[in-house]
Computed example of a mutant assay.
Amino acid sequence: MTSHPVEETRAHTRLLKYGLETDDARAYWRRVDPSRPQAGVREVIDGQWFSARSMARVDVLLTNFRGRFDAFPHALRVLHAWHEMDPDTRRLICHWHLQLSDPLYRKFTGQALVARRSSARPEASLPLAVAWINEHGPARWSMSTRIQFASKLLTAVSSAGLAATDRDPRPLVCPRVDEHALGYILYLLREVAFQGNLLANPYLASVGLEGELLVARLRALSTVTLRRQGELVEFGWRYPNLLAWAGATVTIPPPAQLGAAG
């Protein structure tokens, strides 16, 4: 690749039509050809990639997955080959890719809910989400769109494991992040142009990894090294990129079979 993939910065309404949907994501990863990811609707339907879906629904699904996964070619190759994935890790990966592809979801989960989680009332609700959208969403959106989008935000939050229930008020929780999940997001972010840095960003903050807790997790992780002296922080990487990390830690094929790293 000649340039880094980038996180999405333009607000859109794709979340209104398609939520986190981890089962469909897994089906997509398994069947897509990472070397030719732009599968057409007819190909997907004829190949029975998913359970009975209308052509219109498959079109919506593919539009979302192209933004969430195809936009990150190394990640798509890794996910295609990563067959034995823990369900909690799958939810986190879908959550992080939704953050990458949707700036409002990223800001809501990576900033608003992080602040809310440390408040006197660590919970989320539809009125809270609507008020947040009123402040941060596009001014052109109607009130109906804002309410629908706020509801979809909360549904995705619960599906990602960031809330203990799917009914208001939703107690906010920090999901379990194992070494494979943490390694994945670190090596992915290394290859993505995003706002923030590896010690302060909405991706890790959204799952409770901040400050000294994050530093402790990074120091215990075998696939990276962290040296800190005062304000100076130095990262070291055991593997040159996400493909090499995956080939050595979570996938059966060696890195060469996952695709060229260039």
Rank of each mutant, 00 (worst) to 15 (best):
T109S: 10
T109M: 03
T109A: 08
A112H: 13
L113V: 02
V114P: 02
A115N: 15
R116C: 10
R116W: 09
R116V: 10
S118H: 14
S119T: 09
A120Y: 11
A120M: 11
A120G: 08
R121Y: 06
R121F: 06
R121G: 01
P122L: 00
P122D: 02
E123Q: 12
E123P: 05
A124K: 14
L126R: 13
L126P: 07
L126Y: 08
L128W: 14
A129V: 14
V130D: 02
A131D: 12
A131C: 06
I133N: 07
I133G: 05
N134H: 13
H136T: 09
H136R: 12
A139H: 02
R140Q: 14
W141S: 02
W141A: 00
S142C: 13
M143R: 15
M143P: 15
S144Q: 13
T145I: 14
I147C: 07
Q148I: 00
F149Y: 15
F149Q: 07
K152C: 10
L153E: 04
L154N: 05
T155H: 09
A156M: 10
V157R: 04
V157I: 07
S158R: 04
S158K: 06
S159Y: 09
A160K: 00
G161K: 06
A163I: 00
R167C: 07
D168M: 07
D168V: 03
P169T: 03
